Simulated scan of single mutants.
Amino acid sequence: MTQQVLTAQEVINAVGAEFNLNTKQWVVFRMIADFFVAKYVKKNLPEDEQLRMLMTGPGGTGKTHIVKAVQCVLQHYGCAHLIRFLVPTGSAVALINGMTIHKWLGIKIKSKNKGKGNWDPGTTAEDYAVLISVSNHAQLQDEWKNVESLLLNEVSLVGLQLIAEINHALQFAKEKPHLWFRGVSIIFSGNFFQFLPVWGSALYTPISLYAGQNNTEIQKRLGHLVWKLLNAVINLTE
């Protein structure tokens, strides 16, 4: 007796029903799952096609629930290795079986020798330098060679400077220099009414026309540009 092979839509529908998703959760889940199956299972999307989504909403609206449903679809197709789940802080790692941004991308934060003005080091964002070691270039490439999608949770804790550094780190890891995030699809998840970034400016911070040209301001401008690349935004309310 032959085993029935389910179509992609049947798999997605079965997982969505199993997780008992509400209307808006279904919309987000289907957008992510349909894109992933079309590009990486059926392979009928252009190589440079990217999903750059913000999934937002207050606590309790099921953002992590949707992530787990997406993981289930990927596991069905044996493609779980194609997506990475990152969070800004260690306290949120266990929720989605992920890793902190800095550890996985090889980003290090180093305090400078002197603080800004007469303040002690660490008082302002300018007192820190972000380092990506060239020595871990090969390691980054090896760890990211098969990764095609990135889900970044707790987005309120991600600043403009950090999102610029994520893009920069992926330049080391992937070999598609003409694409933002080097062609990696990225899904931001979180609630902007929660905590602000400890280091850096919130992603919605406007850039002043009179901003300076120091490294911090340049990073802010780059991060702001990257943030404007979103092509899908879903606000969960139930």
Rank of each mutant, 00 (worst) to 15 (best):
His65Asn: 04
Gln50Val: 03
Thr64Gln: 05
Leu45Glu: 07
Met53Ala: 13
Leu54Gly: 00
Val70Gln: 08
Gly57Ala: 09
Lys43Cys: 11
Lys43Phe: 01
Tyr40Gly: 03
Met53Glu: 03
Val73His: 10
Gly62Ala: 09
Gln50Ser: 04
Pro58Ala: 13
Val41Asp: 01
Gly60Glu: 14
Gly78Met: 09
Cys79Arg: 14
Gln71Ile: 00
Lys68Thr: 01
Gln71Cys: 05
Gly60Phe: 11
Tyr77Ile: 04
Pro58Cys: 08
Ala69Gln: 06
Ala80Tyr: 09
Arg52Tyr: 11
Arg52Glu: 01
Gly62Lys: 03
Met53Asp: 02
Gln71Asp: 01
Gln75Gly: 06
Glu47Ser: 12
Arg52Val: 13
Ala80Phe: 14
Met55Phe: 08
Tyr77Asn: 10
Gln50His: 01
Ile32Arg: 07
Lys63Gly: 07
Gly60Ser: 11
Gln75Tyr: 09
Tyr40Trp: 14
Gly59Trp: 10
Val37Cys: 03
Lys42Met: 13
Cys72Thr: 15
Val73Ser: 03
Thr64Cys: 04
Leu51Met: 14
Val37Thr: 07
Asp34Phe: 06
Tyr77Lys: 09
Val67Ser: 12
Lys68Ala: 04
Ala69Gly: 08
Lys68Asn: 14
Gln71Leu: 00
Glu47Phe: 03
Ile32Cys: 12
Val67Gln: 06
His76Gly: 04
Lys39Arg: 07
Gly60Met: 10
Thr56Ala: 12
Lys63Ser: 12
Val73Pro: 07
His65Pro: 02
Gln71Glu: 10
His76Ile: 10
Met55Ala: 12
Leu45His: 04
Thr64Met: 06
His65Val: 06
Asn44Gln: 14
Met55Gly: 04
Gln75Ala: 15
Thr61Lys: 03
Phe35Leu: 10
Gln50Asn: 02
Asp34Thr: 13
Cys79Tyr: 11
Val70Cys: 15
Ala80Glu: 15
Ile66Trp: 01
Arg52Gly: 00
Val73Gly: 10
Gly57Phe: 03
Met31Phe: 00
Lys39Tyr: 01
Tyr77Gly: 08
Glu49Pro: 00
Lys68Tyr: 00
Tyr40His: 15
